[in-house]
Write a protein that binds this DNA or RNA. Sequence first.
DNA 1: TGAAGTATATTCACTGGTCGGTATACATCC
DNA 2: GGATGTATACCGACCAGTGAATATACTTCA
Lengths: 197, 197
Amino acid sequence: MARSATSTRERIVSAANKLFYGDGIRGVSLDAVAAKAGVTKRTLYYHFRSKDDLVAAYLAGRDQPNLALFRKWFEEADGALPAKVEQIFRNLARSARHPKWKGCGFLRTSAELANMPGHPAIKIGAAHKKKFDAWLREVFEQAGIADASQLSRQILLLLDGSFAVVLLHRDPSYMETAGEAARSLVDGALRGRVARR
Amino acid sequence: MARSATSTRERIVSAANKLFYGDGIRGVSLDAVAAKAGVTKRTLYYHFRSKDDLVAAYLAGRDQPNLALFRKWFEEADGALPAKVEQIFRNLARSARHPKWKGCGFLRTSAELANMPGHPAIKIGAAHKKKFDAWLREVFEQAGIADASQLSRQILLLLDGSFAVVLLHRDPSYMETAGEAARSLVDGALRGRVARR
DNA sequence: TGAAGTATATTCACTGGTCGGTATACATCC
DNA sequence: GGATGTATACCGACCAGTGAATATACTTCA
């Protein structure tokens, strides 16, 4: 058969991405994924050993694009460091207003599979957040902030908190509140740096 | 048949609580709930119209006890306001070290049912968080903090963020980090109050 | 070069089991 | 005797995963 422009495997992961993110892991059958990918279920099982395998591939596919987007938002923002951090939250609030937005796929998966702590998908989610944390910490270190590690963790707590809260209340303004809190914390850390000279 | 000390309905809700909190909504069948409650499934359906109904009852049953616990932690904590707020996070970290801990039932349910925004269980979860927010806001208002509403929302973001992050990384120390951030924010708000006189 | 063999990729049809929900009947109590 | 509560048994739909067969592409070697 003629090979399509996108590989079969890619089409399956793309279909899984839309369905799993939209309806959750246990809410989506592999019949549905196969149908959306235009493939029989048996073909799906040729490319992936199990549903858990496909779930892991779904999250692995979101890792890099997500990180790149956050970095882009930060780099394109104007102003000093606190304002640049806040801008990430502003952009997030804008994307959360999209009707298909349903929170953070990594966090939602870890919530749904909380009874399987060692699940590959959860490890991928944890690694994703660690990468974001490491990037933020480096940004803070280069700005001369003393406890950059603590600050980056606090910003991440606000970020993930806003995912959870906005998903619950369906009110993206919480992300702006989180952004203001983040700005306060970064501001405070910068003042600490100056005072300590 | 002789009526037991706890009503049949209570036993069903108690069984649902343990199972839904432990394994998630879609991960638990009503057969399993009925079996754990020592009741046939038909009896369960006599007391609850549907699974969604039972899920709502499960979360409604966690509302008051949860709020009472947070208030108790706050009231029993020593020190000034920032320290008392931080103590909530410290206590949460302690409870998160229990092996059966699996995050916040309200947030996990809203994550799992994100494709059903109007689900009764999600409304109950949202109302629960609003109650906590209102209590915290009142505490801040009585302490003379100007923008008590904004501050209470920020604390809630840190709290829910720590639920999500600790569930993902299985590392309760994030709750202590969140507590320190919360203390910073309350401290800053109190200094703002003094400066503005 | 071309026939035979092998690895890759895909399909149809199916299975054993689970799930939410129900029809019907029986028991208990005011 | 009617309202309340519980039990047995069942249904149709769905779901993760599989068996057997087939089509296509690449490799080997006489």
